[in-house]
Design a protein around this nucleic acid. Structure first.
Lengths: 137, 137
DNA sequence: CAGGATCCGTGGTGATACTG
DNA sequence: CAGTATCACCACGGATCCTG
């Protein structure tokens, strides 16, 4: 029995029970999921999980991101308490972002999903091509 | 040593290595993450993981979703090969959606994230209030 | 260096009405 | 029952310019 199988049998969460049918609760639930599901959050949380980084470092490590979206996304993550922002009053200014305990607790599950996405990229890509090909008639 | 700790030490994926810096690769990677990060996909995959469901069942189990978005989201999931669609030519018509093996392989990691979101709802909600309160000056 | 401000296009989402 | 069609909105995100 693999470790994965053991993990699966230890606890089997139910989506139906989790997301709840209380409007308020399910709204918060979805707002959390959509935060980590937006365009840049996953990558930034993953990078900060490896260690603290400066603004420019993050920008260079994240190809395609603009300063605007980097700032915006980091602020949202800071708001949720996933990321900490430390300012050094120097010239030139230096700002260091790091993962909080809460952020680190998310990194594990989130990296598992990211790894799944990485592992199944080819399969999904093929599925899409097949679907699109059979759709054009 | 807990099972969670063991899992963490067995394999430590690196976001930096995973998302890749090849533009094509990272684009597909993000498209996969944003699919499962959109407003309804997580809930639908979670529900179908518990068993096949009809269109109307899914609609009733997913408070707030419109027919349009339910159809649209299910089509996207079908396109990616996460969900299978079976049509029974009856009157009235009956359509049953079910999770594919690929969809089931995603459910584990995804439910872990969903569980994290559920577990930390209160903490995140408090963080947001604190952040917003200190912002208004 | 680390952003803030502004404009603007696109796409995801909802509301409504209709159909095989 | 299980959708489709259409309109409309607006938040997400990119581009550009500016600043302490």
């Amino acid at each position: 029995m693999s470790v994965e199988d053991r993990m699966a049998t230890i606890h089997q969460p139910s989506m139906h029970a989790m997301c709840g049918h209380d409007p308020m609760e399910s709204e918060l639930f979805r707002s959390v999921l959509s935060r980590i599901g937006d365009k840049w959050s996953v990558m930034l949380v993953g990078m900060l999980h490896e260690g603290p980084r400066r603004f420019t470092e993050l920008k260079q490590m994240t190809p395609g991101i603009s300063s605007r979206m980097l700032t915006h996304t980091l602020r949202q993550l800071e708001r949720d308490g996933l990321v900490e922002r430390e300012i050094f009053a120097e010239i030139p200014p230096r700002v260091v972002y790091s993962s909080t305990p809460l952020g680190k607790s998310l990194a594990g599950p989130m990296l598992a999903v990211a790894e799944w996405a990485s592992d199944h990229q080819a399969e999904i890509s093929a599925n899409r091509e097949r679907y699109d090909a059979s759709a054009e008639d």
